[in-house]
Amino acid sequence: MISLLLILIICAAVYTLSSSNLLHGVIAMSFVSLLSALIFYILQAPDVAITEAAVGAGVSTVIYVWALRYTKRSDDGDS
């Protein structure tokens, strides 16, 4: 179960780094956070799960979106 979630996380992480639209990357990144919150919940760490969900998926996504709002959002600098 954990392994499965971890594989999903890795897929989302790879997608985050390779997608050309940074906004999609942000969404995938918050997906990573949510999945890790789920892992923490399964692993008997409810406190960490709540924090990760609130902070990782919530606050940091808001900040990312805010940062991208100022800009054109496409990743054209990469090969």
């Binding site: 940074l22 890790s36 991208l68 990469d78």
Partner: peptide
């Protein structure tokens, strides 16, 4: 891309925590 670098920083942090 520096935003992707920040994504990467988030990921290694998440990995250490997990």
């Amino acid at each position: 891309n520096i935003i992707k670098k920040i994504f990467g920083l988030n990921m290694i942090n998440a990995a250490a925590v997990i």
